[in-house]
Amino acid sequence: MTIGVLAVQGAFIEHEHRMEQLGARTVELRCAEDLNQPLDGLILPGGESTAMGKLLRELGMLDTLREKIRAGLPVFGTCAGLLLLAEDMENDSRRHIATMHITACRNAYGRQLGSFFTCAPFADAGNIPMTFIRAPYIASVGEGTEVLATVDGRIVAARQDMQLVTAFHPELGDSTAVHQYFLSMVREHLANGAA
């Protein structure tokens, strides 16, 4: 199983380590040519969504990523990755990949001082640690999008088909639950492709 990790900006190394810990091979995606190789899944890490979106356009990666995701490639976006995937944003007119039926709110918890840590239920995994750093949240979800976690009444994780997003950084905690959840999506996708 090969997982491509977007490595143009942001905290991608931690995702690579977590994937490798769980037995998946990772490749760093830094330019348009990197998207030509076979991938079973894709991770869009945290970072700065505006900078990442700009780099994806300049590097000629944005349209190809959108096509692959629309074709069903499993994708997991954390924090800035969530913003890249959001179809709409409450407080920003920019759109990037925009394949997921969610409305997000950028820097919803404030600047760096608004960062915090908590434990809350995620999907069927029970309580897991959640680290929020200048985090967004999901203001609303559209049809076919399942809410996987909420904190203080705000949606912080969701899934639509083969797209998974978290407002928090599971790669920074001790739990592997979210990454295992993503890999189960990848296995589901591979099984359906083989059927």
Rank of each mutant, 00 (worst) to 15 (best):
F122E: 06
S49A: 15
I128V: 14
K68T: 00
S93V: 09
T26S: 05
S175C: 10
G173E: 02
R66C: 00
F76V: 08
I97A: 05
T64W: 01
E188H: 13
I155K: 03
Y109Q: 02
N192Q: 15
I43F: 10
M19A: 05
R95I: 14
R106L: 02
M52R: 09
F117G: 06
G126I: 08
S184L: 07
E87M: 15
T2A: 03
P129T: 04
T99Q: 05
K54Q: 09
Q180R: 12
L83E: 09
E14A: 09
T64C: 14
A191H: 11
E33W: 08
L62W: 04
P45Y: 08
P38T: 10
L148C: 08
G173H: 06
A158F: 03
I69T: 00
K54R: 10
A7E: 15
A98P: 12
C105L: 03
I102W: 05
S49Q: 13
M19K: 06
D88K: 12
L44T: 00
N36Q: 12
V156G: 06
V147R: 02
A158M: 04
S49Y: 14
T118W: 11
C119Y: 14
Q37D: 07
Q180F: 01
M162P: 00
R57N: 08
T50R: 13
G110Y: 10
A194Q: 09
L85W: 12
D124C: 03
L148F: 07
R57E: 11
G142H: 04
S140Y: 12
L29Y: 13
V27T: 08
L44S: 00
G46H: 12
I138L: 07
I155G: 02
R95G: 10
H179K: 02
E14W: 03
L172F: 13
L39A: 14
A135M: 10
P74S: 14
R154I: 01
A191L: 10
A108Q: 02
E16S: 11
T99L: 01
T145F: 02
K68V: 01
N192W: 15
E67C: 00
T166C: 12
R94I: 03
A98V: 15
